[in-house]
Design a protein around this nucleic acid. Structure first.
Lengths: 232, 232
DNA sequence: CGTCCTTTTGAACATTGTCAAACACTGTGG
DNA sequence: CCACAGTGTTTGACAATGTTCAAAAGGACG
């Protein structure tokens, strides 16, 4: 790995508070690598040898069963993946692939477990991160089980809008067919759901989203911090 | 709390390895309480003051949104709940109620965070437990998104059978309408799904399940350790 | 310019949910 | 012990939601 990567890594929440010595130990065995788009990184069921962290780019976590596939989540800079598997030394429950050209850190899972034992600050950061991920998945399940697909889409749009600073026009950060899978529907169904949001001031042309009646959309979406707030 | 509770608590995985001193500190502020059935324990959105652990009985975690409700999971002896919220000092994402008369430990969340800082063995146990819960939820999402309701039911039955030592006849440990909610369907739909499993050797009368053609059922259910194995 | 992939559209179909009513089970109080 | 209320379960008819398949339209890229 390059020397120049180190400051960026160190400034990630997971590593920010830990002792220099422990950080050095972690970094010693680490790889940093660039991957092209659409590259498989890990395979569901494989043993988990490395904790992965996205520095730059986009990674999709997905899962398969019986010839079906579903997108579980999409990760961008700063996100960790397969932390739980690395900690428990258990097989991965999800596969991962890059969607764009991506830069990724790989920390040997064994080093992670070792440093976890020694360094309190790191242990705390790991627990915080894991609890954060857990809560993220719980929110996802609540959305899936309590909302219709149109409601999920409406809330997704409002959340995206917030991420883009509340602008009334922004660009979808994901392909529609992946978005459909994330939201738990087929691409065809997403296409129709988008149309059915038109009376609520949603216009989507290509990747460009325009929300002209945010209050109407919110009335339909009924967002709540207990499902839709990524922090909290 | 009673002195007589202490050995049972100590033997839980979460506390087994920790120092006597730390354990004493945790137990000092703890409550142990019996609750009648159908008692609300915590409410979604509330601040999380106590880590809860089920000693005996049954607890349902559930969530609400917009006049709808869904069962998230059902917990029995030994299970912790709202660990993630306690660790992060964040609002609960789920509500909890007893289903049967239940005995429950409540540890002040602040004590948990304090002892986590001091005691390595406890910190490790917390991370392990959290990673375990995380993986459990991920498996749940995979089931929801990759399987039809009949497939979920089939796998649920096979899992239950395994829990009962593989007996061809056993008794449902949950009310059907709750099971329906756990599996992500309506009670009516569960009732019909049960019928549609009859050709696969499933007979359910009241709470009594009989599985006469396990191989046929498995062919339909296609269970996999990456979704259906509670450990791993 | 053509090829490949995504997106959209339409029509048929399958699955799941809703509503209303009947039925079964449980526990209570007469 | 029985009648009864209350709750959970099942059934039927129907509506809503979501999927599948096929085909056309639109974009990206060599």
């Amino acid at each position: 790995m390059r020397e120049s990567d180190i400051p960026a890594i160190r400034s990630l929440e997971l590593f920010r508070e830990m002792a220099d010595e422990s950080f050095a130990e972690l970094v010693r065995g680490a790889y940093v690598q660039n991957f092209p788009p659409n590259m498989d990184l890990i395979l569901e069921g494989d043993q988990c040898d490395f904790l992965h962290i996205v520095i730059d780019g986009t990674v999709e976590l997905f899962a398969n069963w019986s010839d079906r596939e579903t997108a579980m989540t999409i990760l961008r800079g700063g996100a960790t993946f397969i932390l739980a598997a690395a900690i428990r030394d258990a097989p991965n429950l999800m596969s991962a692939r890059t969607l764009e050209r991506s830069r990724i850190i790989m920390l040997p899972a064994e080093d992670v477990r070792l440093v976890f034992e020694k360094d309190h600050a790191f242990a705390r950061a790991v627990v915080m991160e894991l609890a954060y991920c857990y809560r993220g998945v719980i929110k996802g399940v609540k959305g899936l089980k309590l909302r219709t697909s149109i409601e999920r889409l409406a809330n997704y749009l409002l959340k995206s809008q917030k991420k883009f600073g509340g602008a009334s026009e922004f660009s979808l950060p994901v392909e529609k067919r992946r978005l459909a899978s994330i939201l738990g529907m087929t691409p065809e169904n997403l296409s129709r759901s988008i149309k059915s949001l038109r009376p609520y001031g949603v216009e989507i042309a290509g990747q460009v989203v325009k929300i002209t009646k945010p209050d109407d959309l919110k009335t339909l979406a009924k967002p709540t911090s207990l499902i839709d707030d990524p922090r909290s």
